[in-house]
């Protein structure tokens, strides 16, 4: 390659006027073993560009598709669990409410006993009703308070 040409290209290059093709020419020239001595300082520059091109991104990309997937099926799972629990627990409840005959007799006995008790209690309260008269008498005795008024006046110092 003509050295003159390279020098011209370098000038254009430094002014930012070279095309990609011309820049490739420069890169090719400076990747040679021997370069014109007065252009030697360009060599590391262009080889740096070539080396940097090769660096790669090696980290693994965590692209989680599971997240959206999970939410979709979460509701399905929830409904399934709900229905299952209803199915499992409902018969149990019914079993508890069924009553055997022996239990029915016991319940009836208990009811009768309670009825008798309440009847007697009611009787008792009816008899105690006349105590209300005492209250009435209490109000009638209220006028006695008026007696204290003149007494206060008498004993006033």
């Amino acid at each position: 390659m003509v050295l003159n040409n390279i020098e011209n290209l370098l000038e254009k290059y430094e002014n930012g006027e070279t095309s990609l093709k011309e820049e490739q020419q420069l890169k090719d020239y400076f990747s040679q073993e021997t370069v014109a001595p007065h252009l030697e300082m360009y060599k590391p520059m262009f080889s740096y560009f070539l080396v940097s091109q090769k660096e790669q991104f090696t980290k693994q990309l965590p692209l989680e598709t599971k997240k959206a997937f999970n939410f979709k099926w979460l509701s399905v799972a929830a409904v399934a669990v709900l229905m299952l629990s209803i199915y499992v627990f409902k018969p149990n409840n019914l079993g508890e409410t069924t009553i055997t005959d022996a239990e029915k007799v016991e319940i009836n006995n208990a009811k009768e006993a309670l009825a008798i008790m309440s009847k007697h209690f009611n009787k008792g309260t009816a008899q105690v009703g006349y105590l209300g008269v005492i209250n009435k008498a209490g109000t009638q005795v209220d006028y006695l308070k008026e007696i204290t008024n003149p007494m206060n006046r008498l004993f006033k110092r």
Partner: peptide, 21 residues
């Protein structure tokens, strides 16, 4: 603007390299 920036950068790199050289 890109050409100007590019030209400046290339010149800076070359100058610094020339110095060390």
């Amino acid at each position: 603007a890109i050409r100007v920036a590019l030209s400046r950068a290339r010149k800076t790199i070359r100058e610094k390299l020339t110095n060390t050289h």
